[in-house]
Design a protein around this nucleic acid. Sequence first.
DNA 1: CTGTTAGCGCTTTCAA
DNA 2: TTGAAAGCGCTAACAG
Lengths: 336, 336
Amino acid sequence: MNIKEVARLAKVSTATVSRTINGSDKVTPETAERVRKAIETLKFYPNTNARALGSGRSSLYGLIISDITNPFFPELVKSFEDIAVQYGQEVLIANTNYDPHRMEVCVSRMLQRKVDGVAIMTSEIAEHLIDEFNSRKIPLAFLDNATPQKGISNILVDYAAGIDAAVDHLISLGHKTIGFIAGPMSLASARIRKRAFINALKRNNLKLDLQFVEQGNHRTDGGHEAMSRLLDHKAHPTAVIASNDMTAIGAMGAVFERGLHIPQDISIVGFDDIELSAFTQPALTTVRLSRQEIAKLAFRALYNTYQTGATKGAEYTIQPTLVIRKSTGPKPAGKH
Amino acid sequence: MNIKEVARLAKVSTATVSRTINGSDKVTPETAERVRKAIETLKFYPNTNARALGSGRSSLYGLIISDITNPFFPELVKSFEDIAVQYGQEVLIANTNYDPHRMEVCVSRMLQRKVDGVAIMTSEIAEHLIDEFNSRKIPLAFLDNATPQKGISNILVDYAAGIDAAVDHLISLGHKTIGFIAGPMSLASARIRKRAFINALKRNNLKLDLQFVEQGNHRTDGGHEAMSRLLDHKAHPTAVIASNDMTAIGAMGAVFERGLHIPQDISIVGFDDIELSAFTQPALTTVRLSRQEIAKLAFRALYNTYQTGATKGAEYTIQPTLVIRKSTGPKPAGKH
DNA sequence: CTGTTAGCGCTTTCAA
DNA sequence: TTGAAAGCGCTAACAG
């Protein structure tokens, strides 16, 4: 069952069938109709592999993420797929599992499938792998690539603005002693958030107490432990900002374990706005980083670069927004 | 850059390069080594499309799910990929978004990519689409297919056993009035759970009060509303089982809104054990349905069927297990 | 507007 | 063990 059979049944050449499939305008409507009917009756599905091979275009875009079970990614994946479908393109998803070796495997898969572009939404990627893509002129889009490069698109996130919004919100609620639970310092984006927090305190003339800047790991366990340490101080902060939502959720657990209440005794702010955050008890106030926006910008950058054959990539900056829910409240009376 | 260049550099024919790539044992180690070195220096990645076209095997397995942002699926996807990688196969993921039309698109994608098998982990699929696969002898594996079919593998879940375990657990805690929040009755698996609940009550000689069997939608909003209705009754149940975790989480919110405590005033049990459930406050007691097990069984069934060319599919039954966390406790004194 | 035909890059007989 | 060559199914000049 192939294009020949369709051609035979429709009494045309394979070229005409191909043209019809690809929506060429140089096919008489009547002919096209006949072809379409033949396709229908034969239940013919054009072989993607042959198409890609013949045309040199795969219409496939790669999406490399760390781990689909990390709640940050599902929405990103979904949005990326949705927009790709809109553009008539397909998506090849690959997980690195935070493992450099798996990353190599992912890159190799992309190369073998001859993708038309790759969105790399994870930080850990070796320079030589980027070169593989570059030398083949495969468009790349990064999320938060620290070192922008020739011909590579970059989606930047204004983390500082997000942190600022969180700090301002807490200050407006009367908080003066604000703690922070950082993410892994190996992550550029985590470093930026921590620095932004410190700067925000300064700008607001709040004293920076380094013992209230704790270290987490962007997972719940790290948040839990960090918050426990924070609560060990006789005079703990009345509000804590976490570097991401998972950290905040872990932190909330630690607060409850001490018999304290959120937000009556302590306010908590997260970062990312993963789905889960709306369902915590109380619902988490957090800085929303729109995954849909990231996905759209990344895909469009790739698509445009591929279509136009442009050699320089685009750069976009995304503004996070504060989502106020129930985990933040006025500073408790009598505290500092 | 293709197999020819490699052949030239290694001073062999393209056939030998192909054999080396595919690990044929009829290549002298020395020759193979030369080829491998050539591949290395040229940074050659064999074109998957051409490989599939030439061989007739795609080494690609399709995975159709409803929606990657549904927390049930990420772990399933990950496990499926992990095992596929182990077997040297690739995975093509497709979301239906609960939309029959998108389902057609998904099926079409699978057909066009000439997948070697498809795991359909969503319920809504039209009969004629199944036929498309059948007529092309593409192995299929279903999750919970109500009507088992010729040559199709089926992963069954013993939902009843899971519900039984939940009911038994609550009874052992002294509960006598147990409520249930069902899922959408359009879902076979939801119907089974509801029926299992009713049967379990009977078997334990507990009276079945139909006003305590509420209707949800497997989402948090449905759980919230259903639980609110349940709590409107003067004498509400002291324990409630939800048809899935999202429902349970929504229900928990409704309980808190009334100023009641979990599990002191009311115990809650979920179903699925999605990641989120470990992080609710209190952590949710639930019936765990191992997505890893589902994924493994589904993939292996497909792989074996394809490799052996078997015409009849396998059938497996998965036993869910109760995970006791903090949302269940003894029946409150003085209640029924 | 339609048909002919030479590839696309790899696999796989078939011979050697 | 290796090579030559005929496909795999489709696309895209090129001709007409």
